[in-house]
Amino acid sequence: MVYTQSLMPIYQLTDDLIFPSVEGAEDGIVAVGGDLLPERLIIAYQSGIFPWYSKGDPIIWWSPDPRFVLFPDRLHISKSMKRVMNNKEIKVTFNQNFEQVISECKQIPRPGQKGTWITDEMELAYIRLHDIGVAESVEVWKDKELVGGMYGVRIGKVFSGESMFSKASNTSKLALIHFMRKFRAEGGELFDCQVHSDHMERMGAEELSRESYLGYLR
């Protein structure tokens, strides 16, 4: 066991590919330790758990309650974004350059953040997930340059968005909109934002209890 500042015990993972019940998560933390092998990551996402930690720290596994989610039929598209979508100079593709997308997400400066949570270990882990068809990417191109995109993990009818980036105005929003249309057409039911962000709230995201969220994974 390891302990948080509140002295509540947190489950320490071993080499066994198991996680404790998320119902006992203290402040959303389910467990620490383990590894980022594809098998463990798949079990984690199937259980409503995801890794999120900083370089130099042990792997921390989370399952927040409530969860921040976006239903495909509640996606908000502003009038200004509709004009961006009509820009013929912009091209959107899917799963054409996953490695560059995650690299850009890792390197892009973010206001109020020092460094990135996408460690080298995390980057390699999600590339491996993409290689076996579990992680997906969206690319936004202008003049053959990658100017925006996003990536995440699909488990059944749930897609967990991990990160996105923009090198030109509104291109991460454009990636999300195009993905959500495709996702909905393919039977997708829930886009998992994991935790609250003002950006996703403006796009229509809302809180959902962990219990309800887990129901979409079953």
Rank of each mutant, 00 (worst) to 15 (best):
N97P: 03
G112H: 14
F71C: 05
L36N: 03
G133Q: 07
I43S: 15
S54G: 04
I127K: 14
I108Y: 05
R40F: 05
H76V: 12
V92Y: 05
P72Y: 06
I59S: 08
I132N: 04
S63T: 03
C105P: 05
M85K: 02
P72S: 11
W61K: 04
G115T: 12
S78M: 06
E89Q: 15
K106F: 02
T119S: 07
W61D: 02
R74F: 14
G133D: 06
V84F: 13
Y53G: 01
I118G: 13
E99V: 14
A125L: 03
M81D: 00
A125E: 06
Q100H: 03
S80T: 11
L70H: 01
I59R: 08
K79T: 11
I59F: 05
P109E: 15
K106E: 11
R67T: 11
I108S: 09
Y126I: 02
V134T: 10
V138D: 00
E123C: 12
D73T: 13
F68I: 04
F98H: 02
W62N: 08
Q113N: 14
A44M: 11
M85D: 09
L75W: 04
N95A: 07
D131T: 12
I127A: 15
C105T: 04
N86V: 09
H130F: 12
Y126E: 05
P38R: 00
N86I: 06
E39A: 15
G115R: 00
P66R: 01
S54Y: 04
I60K: 07
K88V: 14
G48A: 02
L124W: 13
E121T: 11
F94Q: 09
Y45K: 05
T93M: 00
S78T: 13
G115L: 04
I108H: 10
Q96L: 12
S103C: 09
I108R: 10
Q46M: 09
I49E: 01
W52N: 04
K114I: 13
F71P: 09
M85Q: 11
Q113V: 15
I108F: 08
V84L: 04
F68T: 14
R40I: 09
Y53H: 12
N95D: 15
E123M: 12
S103P: 01
C105Q: 08
E39M: 11
Q46W: 07
E121L: 08
R110M: 07
T93L: 07
V69L: 08
M81C: 03
V140D: 08
I49S: 05
I102C: 08
S63M: 05
S63I: 05
K55T: 13
I102P: 04
P72Q: 10
Y126A: 06
P72W: 10
W141S: 01
M85N: 05
P58Q: 09
C105S: 05
P58I: 10
K91C: 13
Y126M: 01
S137E: 03
R128P: 01
V138F: 06
V138R: 00
M85F: 05
L129S: 06
Q96H: 08
Q113D: 14
K91T: 15
M122Q: 04
W61N: 00
L75D: 04
L75T: 03
L124C: 12
H130R: 02
P64D: 04
R110D: 03
F68V: 12
M122Y: 12
R40M: 04
